[in-house]
Design a binder for these strands. Structure first.
Lengths: 222, 222
DNA sequence: AGATTTCCTGACCATTTGGTCAAGGGAAAA
DNA sequence: TTTTCCCTTGACCAAATGGTCAGGAAATCT
């Protein structure tokens, strides 16, 4: 039902040093795993499918990762740091508007470069976060609490409009990750526009504009 | 692999009129189907699981919906109209800011009242929209094109800041649906705050504030 | 080269899963 | 009340799925 919580990543002979073949194959498996898990979720993914995509037989894959759970866990772990990094980089010292703009840009860039990772987390969370649950209420919550305090200080100093810092962060997550998670819908709705030029660039400009100045036309931004 | 495209909803004797039992059981099945599909996606869901949740045996469920595909299709169809309605209600005649605020409120309300439907669409789209694909590039695209034109006219009339209408709509979708799709993460990050009072109300106020005025503190809103 | 360890595979297995079917039990029309 | 549907179920099936295992093929080490 729910993946294991033991961090017993790979089988391959824990005490020995890692071979080149081992390194290469584990990477192929993790790549394939990311592809499949990010599309079908843990339960919808099959080991055969991952093995086929990784270009190896199922028993061979299971030589490196003994259980489906282990692959899933390893894929999540590999992408987790990358996912937390942008918010961690938000600095209290910088200019509020510039810091938040930079945060939006980094998150959006991540959505463009690694949409599969975004979808992986999205599916994991929608399924109730059976594996990441503790990370969410632990590390992630602490990180958000910390940065929310930074934003709140900016608001108190009159450098930002009086908005709830948590929901501002949620808005940034939502809008930036949307371009990865709902890529198919965006392409469908934009139609030709999605191909003509870079819609990620239009997205970036629109996000920055709305977050910084809102949509109100009566007081145009400087 | 991918669900059928035939709209052959239920088995039950197409020509005959619908019984009470039939009506009641189909509803139980669709409710259970929504619950399960919205959590695990099409492939991750099992018919046994849906049957158990609907309080009946698998063969009994399959008497009403002959194939797993049929349940999935029916669940999607039942929730589709509800999903498109808020955007359709956006009127060119109203005040731009008021119309957009109302749209945000409606979408957010839908996320609160029917988070499962939101997650159902999210998972379907993340899996490549095998069923809804044509709806996205058909009806949805047409609807968005129409409303984008309305927004563009507002911009041209100087009633809104010069933003891309498509990406504004995406932002509204993203931010409002986020509260349904990532409910688990939101609750984890908010911790106690999620329970104390209604965080949906804080969300609404924050969304309205940011969309209308941005986060800039140097030019406070009226 | 020879010994040792790592890597790979076909065959196999238990369980789960989507789906069928014949036959009995009920509701409701006649 | 009888007849006619509609509803429900246990038993069953073929395919898919997660996982095992013995043994052979490659690397790697000495």
């Amino acid at each position: 039902m729910n993946p294991a919580r033991t961090a017993n990543t790979a089988r391959a002979h824990s005490t020995r040093k890692r071979t080149r073949i081992q390194e290469a194959n584990e990477e192929k498996i993790l790549d394939a795993g990311l592809e499949v898990f990010s599309t079908y979720g843990f339960r919808g993914a099959t080991v055969d499918q991952i093995a086929a995509l990784a270009g190896m037989t199922k028993p061979n894959l299971l030589y490196y990762f003994r259980r489906k759970d282990d692959i899933y866990l390893a894929v999540l772990q590999r992408t987790l740091e990358m996912w937390l990094q942008p918010l961690a980089a938000l600095s209290a010292k910088g200019d509020p508007a510039a810091e938040i703009t930079a945060y939006i840009d980094r998150k959006l860039e991540l959505s463009r470069e690694n949409p599969k990772a975004s979808r992986l987390f999205a599916i994991e969370i929608m399924q109730g976060a059976p594996v990441l649950g503790e990370v969410l209420s632990g590390r992630l919550k602490e990180l958000v609490d910390e940065k929310a305090a930074v934003i709140r200080a900016w608001v108190a100093a009159g450098k930002l409009a009086p908005i709830d810092p948590y929901h501002l962060i949620f808005m940034i997550w939502a809008t930036t990750q949307h371009y990865a998670d709902f890529e198919v819908q965006i392409r469908a709705v934009l139609g030709d526009r999605a191909d003509r030029g870079d819609h990620f660039d239009t997205a970036r400009r629109t996000l920055e504009r709305v977050f910084l100045g809102g949509i109100d036309g009566t007081t145009p931004p400087a």
